[in-house]
């Protein structure tokens, strides 16, 4: 009886575990089934590298949106990564433990704020400020990057804190015993030892920034054009899907699924890099 109960529990839990994998698989299969025939029909070159997006006229070039997604993600990293990593180093190595107890939960709270709220702040405060000081329409690469940079901060910070905290104290003690100052021991030993964890935090944050939709639609301006300056408005891949989904039929709808494939591939690659970075860290230990 006991043996049976255990088996039942085992298989029940296994089913639950596989259901998560199965849903990922189903999503992947569905996106590819809807989008791949379209990519074949239009041709990769006319889809990925053409700049004309006009679904009603049969033009499906998503090149400006790929560029836009990369610009915005890169910009967000430029803002979020240094802040997050510097914050993690400070909180782990220099700040009194009390401060960590207050600041860490506060920043993690930031992760719980809905993205539409960030977008709203961007539209009401950031965009008018950019328009007044830097010119352009305000809704721009810069606005999206700043908003996303703040949004990914909790990801970078909390994973980096864990990575730095997992560096054994003997490393620091060894560095200090050799006559290094505290700062030297931090940047020559601790950061190097925590490097793979910090890289993983950045890559996970990139995935988050690339996939964010609502806040970006609100602050990026959604113009389909390759940007030439940070004050230019852009449309990212995610924004394109969300904006046109409601009205798309036929080829236009398939084009959105194909856009989803591109996004899916980019995120898979990023996650793959993150996983191997984390594995690298485990091996070193």
């Amino acid at each position: 009886m006991k043996f049976n109960g255990e088996n039942i529990a085992k298989y029940a839990l296994m089913t639950v575990a596989f259901s998560a994998v199965a849903s990922l698989l189903l999503i992947a299969v569905f996106i590819f089934k809807e989008g791949l025939p379209f990519m074949m029909k239009v041709g990769l070159k006319d889809f990925l590298f053409a700049s004309d997006w006009d679904p009603l006229a049969g033009k499906f070039g998503i090149y400006p949106m790929i560029v836009a997604s990369l610009w915005v993600t890169f910009g967000a990293m430029l803002i979020g990564a240094p802040l997050g990593i510097a914050g993690a180093i400070f909180l782990n190595e220099f700040a009194p433990p009390m401060m960590m107890k207050i600041i860490k939960p506060t920043i993690e709270l930031l992760a719980g704020i809905p993205s539409v709220v960030f977008g709203f702040l961007g539209v009401m405060v950031l965009a008018p400020w950019i328009r007044a000081t830097l010119g352009g329409p305000g809704l721009s690469v810069l606005a999206a990057s700043i908003i996303l940079g703040i949004m990914v901060l909790p990801t970078v910070l909390s994973i980096s804190i864990d990575a730095i905290a997992s560096v054994p104290n003997s490393y620091r003690e060894g560095a200090l015993a050799l006559g290094a100052t505290r700062w030297q021991s931090v940047y020559m030993v601790t950061i190097k030892a925590a490097r793979s964890g910090i890289i993983a935090s950045i890559i996970l944050a990139m995935g988050r920034a690339l996939g964010e939709t609502m806040a970006v639609i609100m602050v990026a301006g959604n113009t389909v054009k390759v940007p030439h300056a940070v004050t230019d408005p852009v449309r990212t891949l995610t924004a394109n899907i969300a904006l046109e989904m409601a009205n798309a039929t036929g080829m236009a709808r398939e084009a959105l699924f194909a856009t989803g494939i591109v996004l899916f591939m980019v995120i898979m690659v990023l996650n793959g890099i993150a996983l191997s970075a984390i594995k690298g860290k485990a091996r070193k230990k």
């Binding site: 539209v123 329409p137 809704l139 959604n222 113009t223 389909v224 054009k225 408005p233 449309r235 969300a242």
Partner: peptide, 18 residues
């Protein structure tokens, strides 16, 4: 280079702000 908004309401907000 036109900006694109996804509803009548957001167009109104954007015009009211710029």
């Amino acid at each position: 280079d036109a900006l694109v908004q996804d509803s009548n309401g957001t167009i109104r907000e954007t015009v009211a702000n710029d």
